[in-house]
């Protein structure tokens, strides 16, 4: 063992170089693993996200939603299709690594609480990405959407008229109830603290 290690070190000359190689290999391996489609997919399925107990509420409410399979045609949107940007591969992966890591850290350090999620709901524009919605509902974004629903027509025209401007709004600014069947507030609320809320 010792001789083997020694021979590697003498080969690359010096301790620093040895550490460098180890780090570089680790980094490259992680990158390859992350970029490999299989892992990207496996860790993007609702089963994976829902496998942590934190996400139990989210998975259950999701399953009662149109987007979670509660529809006649049996389609399902994956968690990541709404919760990660779908506009470019780099955005998708980097956001995935960062927010996934955050979730893992909160999981193992036990910092998670329903209350935090509850409070954070008002920031929904930051964790639900319009590009995700648009990847399926393309017609709404490109203005080709045909419908007899006057409310939808008017409000989506409004959305498009603001898009890209300083006062841009997102799909979830209006559609607060998609994905989890509008049940999140109900499920996460702590009735003991409720009356102290402003």
């Amino acid at each position: 063992m010792k001789t083997k290690k020694f021979s590697i070190r003498s080969y690359v000359k010096g301790k620093a170089a040895f550490i460098t190689i180890i780090l570089a290999t680790a980094f490259v391996t992680i990158m390859i693993a992350l970029f490999s489609t299989k892992v990207i997919h496996a860790t993007g399925k609702s089963e994976f996200c829902g496998s942590c107990h934190e996400m139990n509420t989210f998975k259950k409410t999701y399953e009662r939603d149109i987007h979670g399979g509660a529809n006649s045609v049996g389609f399902k949107a994956d968690c990541v299709q709404c919760h990660l940007p779908q506009d470019s591969q780099i955005d998708f992966l980097s956001t995935k690594v960062v927010s996934g890591t955050k979730e893992v850290i909160t999981h193992f350090s036990g910092q998670f609480s329903d209350e935090k999620y509850y409070q954070n709901r008002k920031n929904r524009e930051d964790f639900v990405y319009s590009s995700g919605c648009i990847s399926c509902h393309q017609d709404i974004d490109n203005g080709k959407f045909k419908t007899d629903n006057q409310k939808a027509k008017k409000m989506h025209t409004y959305y498009l008229s603001k898009k890209g401007s300083k006062q841009a709004i997102e799909c979830v600014s209006c559609h607060t109830n998609v994905g989890h069947n509008g049940e999140l507030r109900h499920k996460l609320i702590d009735m003991d603290k409720y009356l102290d809320e402003k």
Binding site: P85, D87, I90, D91, L93, S94, T95, K96, V97, V98, S99, Y129, S130, S131, G143, L160, S161, K163, G164, S165, A168
Partner: peptide
């Protein structure tokens, strides 16, 4: 990038 990924929506 991951912490700051903001969508860049184009004006219509």
């Amino acid at each position: 990038e991951g912490m700051n990924a903001k969508e860049q929506s184009k004006e219509t």
